[in-house]
Simulated assay, not measured.
Amino acid sequence: MKSWIKAAALLAVTALAACGGGPTRQVVTDISIGSGQSVQGGFVGGAVPLLGDTAPHVWTSGHPYNHQVHGVDVSRYQGNVNWHQARGAGISFAFIKATEGGDHSDPMFRRYWAETRAAGIPRGAYHFYYFCRSGAEQAAWFMANVPRERGALPPVIDLEWNHQSRNCRYKPSAEEVRREVNIMMSMLHQYYGQRPIIYTTVDFYRDTGVRSVNAEFWLRSVADHPRVTYPGQRWSFWQYTGTGTAPGFTGNVDLNAFAGNRAQWNGWLSARMQR
């Protein structure tokens, strides 16, 4: 690395560390390093992980790296992952795909579930919701595949439109979506002792009124800050890119930020992890 790039990188890291990672401050510190990737900020004393993006976005309303706590969500497409390396680089949590619909399970779930635990990364399981199955059927399938385990994060229901898939062309009404999701939420809450988190996308959120469901939210917003994309909506997690890079991963991985600072993250973990 050339000396002027080193100096710029040091300045970026210093600025980011000084800002404290508050969610309303913007620190844009992308430094191009070739091969279509960039280093955003840096890993400073466990506060900010060393992450990148193969298709970096120019953030104008709030940069993801204003947030101190970052993590990933994964499925079988990530292949082999070095979770110890990921944790050492500052990855603070992982959401792992477990199930889909009422009869599909991710073939990498059990492996990732064991490996993240061994690496000391807090992790939870997520279910990809399928409109040709009832909420009760999907809850039962998830419970059959995801253990009730001490220290796990709350379960997640992934809600996004998928009615154009070859297996299920059904697009339910907003009322049916909310009714069936509430059934699934209640069943999972009773079984795991944790109120599930809802992951959703901009169009699904807009079309279904799912914001009225009693849940914490994990929001996908890859073109702007969630406060712009989902005005007035409280959230715990923000998925800010699907083309991210992180130590321990050989290809792209979804990257996410937690809403609060490091101390708030520790408090959230203490309150949410299954006992």
Results as ranks from 00 to 15, higher is better:
residue 89 A to C: 02
residue 65 Y to K: 04
residue 161 W to I: 00
residue 3 S to D: 08
residue 57 H to Q: 14
residue 229 T to S: 14
residue 101 G to S: 14
residue 131 F to G: 03
residue 64 P to L: 01
residue 145 N to P: 02
residue 150 R to F: 05
residue 139 A to Q: 07
residue 77 Y to C: 04
residue 100 E to S: 07
residue 244 G to P: 13
residue 21 G to Q: 10
residue 101 G to Q: 08
residue 147 P to R: 08
residue 180 E to R: 07
residue 105 S to D: 07
residue 53 D to Q: 08
residue 249 F to M: 14
residue 257 A to C: 13
residue 120 G to L: 00
residue 231 P to C: 13
residue 197 I to P: 05
residue 250 T to Y: 11
residue 203 D to E: 13
residue 159 L to S: 05
residue 186 S to Y: 01
residue 272 R to Y: 04
residue 194 Q to Y: 09
residue 16 L to T: 07
residue 201 T to N: 09
residue 180 E to L: 12
residue 124 G to N: 04
residue 226 P to C: 15
residue 186 S to W: 00
residue 236 S to N: 08
residue 243 T to N: 15
residue 141 W to H: 15
residue 196 P to I: 03
residue 218 W to K: 02
residue 166 R to N: 04
residue 112 Y to Q: 07
residue 175 E to K: 12
residue 152 A to L: 10
residue 73 D to P: 07
residue 173 S to L: 09
residue 173 S to C: 08
residue 243 T to A: 15
residue 116 T to G: 13
residue 194 Q to N: 13
residue 235 W to R: 11
residue 4 W to H: 11
residue 113 W to Y: 08
residue 132 C to R: 06
residue 101 G to T: 09
residue 254 D to F: 01
residue 237 F to K: 02
residue 25 R to E: 11
residue 111 R to E: 00
residue 178 R to A: 09
residue 65 Y to R: 05
residue 153 L to H: 01
residue 15 A to K: 14
residue 100 E to F: 06
residue 229 T to G: 06
residue 104 H to E: 01
residue 223 A to E: 10
residue 181 V to W: 04
residue 144 A to F: 05
residue 227 R to M: 03
residue 68 Q to Y: 00
residue 109 F to E: 02
residue 137 E to D: 07
residue 46 G to N: 12
residue 40 Q to W: 01
residue 79 G to E: 14
residue 123 R to V: 02
residue 165 S to P: 05
residue 214 N to E: 15
residue 173 S to Y: 05
residue 186 S to D: 13
residue 110 R to Q: 12
residue 1 M to C: 01
residue 13 V to K: 12
residue 180 E to A: 10
residue 13 V to P: 03
residue 175 E to V: 14
residue 93 F to S: 11
residue 47 A to W: 01
residue 160 E to C: 00
residue 37 Q to G: 06
residue 151 G to A: 10
residue 87 R to A: 09
residue 152 A to P: 02
residue 116 T to V: 12
residue 145 N to A: 05
residue 72 V to W: 04
residue 9 A to N: 05
residue 65 Y to C: 00
residue 121 I to Y: 07
residue 145 N to T: 01
residue 38 S to V: 10
residue 268 W to C: 00
residue 252 N to P: 12
residue 177 V to K: 09
residue 61 S to A: 11
residue 67 H to N: 08
residue 245 T to N: 09
residue 112 Y to F: 14
residue 124 G to Q: 06
residue 214 N to G: 04
residue 212 S to A: 14
residue 132 C to G: 06
residue 151 G to R: 05
residue 10 L to G: 10
residue 169 R to K: 05
residue 187 M to W: 01
residue 189 H to M: 13
residue 265 W to N: 08
residue 124 G to S: 05
residue 25 R to A: 07
residue 204 F to T: 00
residue 33 I to R: 15
residue 178 R to Q: 14
residue 18 A to R: 14
residue 196 P to G: 02
residue 147 P to T: 11
residue 208 T to H: 00
residue 180 E to Y: 10
residue 199 Y to P: 14
residue 149 E to Y: 02
residue 105 S to K: 07
residue 167 N to W: 14
residue 140 A to T: 11
residue 45 G to N: 11
